[in-house]
């Protein structure tokens, strides 16, 4: 390939990469408050840059709504870099949209076609009640976490250095993979049964794999699962949807580990 040809190809690709805009139709869930009945509303939004994230597109829509003196759409967001777990949204029938291993804030509009109708709904579960529009109350996850998702440590000033305990690399890696869970709730939203097993399994696993977590392992798994059941999440039927939709790619291996941990806990509890 000659230099000129290469140059031509490069500029062509650059042009392709350059920002393109699309016009889209949106069907978005609107709900005034927790007690009101919501419905899907249709919106039209033009000149959406394909480089913008899904949340930036919603910002653009909200500006349009504000200019039209309409109530903007409420949606959760915080860090906008895929680590806080605040953004949610069920986009075109999938948690965090059609892309894999990303949160909604990392989903780009280039994943959608010009003229496409995009469905945007809140995460649906009895344990995730809608507060307003697309915002759901995920504090049930906090209560599960509070039931056992911690390690009790002495903070009186004589705390032991965590690195003083040797941990096999393999276990440390597995624990880290589990700890990557940001608690966004995509697993619950995707699950046909609205089960929280992947979330709880990740939280149980990250401690169960480490020596620091073994001390309270039995009560942790029993209490966290009990709280999970009490919060009204469904039961796991091993469909695997959660792991596919998880933005942090938490594996089903963790659910199997929790099943083992629970069996141990159940049989040894007094």
């Amino acid at each position: 390939m000659g230099l000129t040809n290469a140059y031509c190809l490069m500029t062509k690709n650059l042009k392709k990469m350059a920002s393109k805009t699309i016009n889209i139709n949106l069907k978005i869930w609107r709900q005034k408050n927790a007690n009101s009945k919501g419905s899907m509303e249709t919106y039209k939004l033009d000149n959406v840059s394909t480089d913008s994230s899904f949340l930036e597109m919603l910002d653009q829509l909200n500006e349009q709504l504000i200019n039209e003196r309409q109530e903007p759409i409420a949606f959760d967001h915080d860090c906008r870099e895929g680590i806080c777990g605040m953004c949610s949204l069920f986009i075109n029938g999938e948690a965090h949209g059609p892309d894999r291993a990303v949160t909604t804030c990392q989903l780009h509009m280039r994943k959608f076609k010009d003229g496409e109708t995009i469905f945007v709904e809140p995460f649906r579960a009895k344990a995730f009640p809608v507060i307003k529009d697309l915002v759901v109350d995920r504090s049930s996850f906090d209560r599960i976490q509070q039931a056992g998702g911690f390690v009790s440590v002495n903070t009186s000033g004589r705390t032991m250095d965590a690195n003083a305990i040797p941990i096999p690399k393999h276990d440390a890696d597995k624990a880290f993979e589990a700890a990557a869970c940001i608690g966004c709730g995509a697993c619950v939203a995707s699950c046909v049964n609205a089960s929280a097993m992947l979330f709880v399994a990740a939280k149980v696993s990250q401690y169960a794999l480490l020596p620091q977590g073994k001390v309270e392992a039995r009560d942790r798994v029993l209490n966290m699962v009990r709280t999970m059941d009490e919060e009204g999440f469904g039961n796991c039927t091993n469909t695997g949807a959660c792991a596919v939709e998880c933005p942090k790619e938490i594996s089903l291996e963790n659910i199997a580990r929790m099943n083992r941990e629970y069996l141990k806990g159940m049989l040894s509890a007094e």
Partner: peptide, 11 residues
Amino acid sequence: QYAMNNAASNS
């Protein structure tokens, strides 16, 4: 229930 659920994409 969801108005649009693309469950076939994940299970």
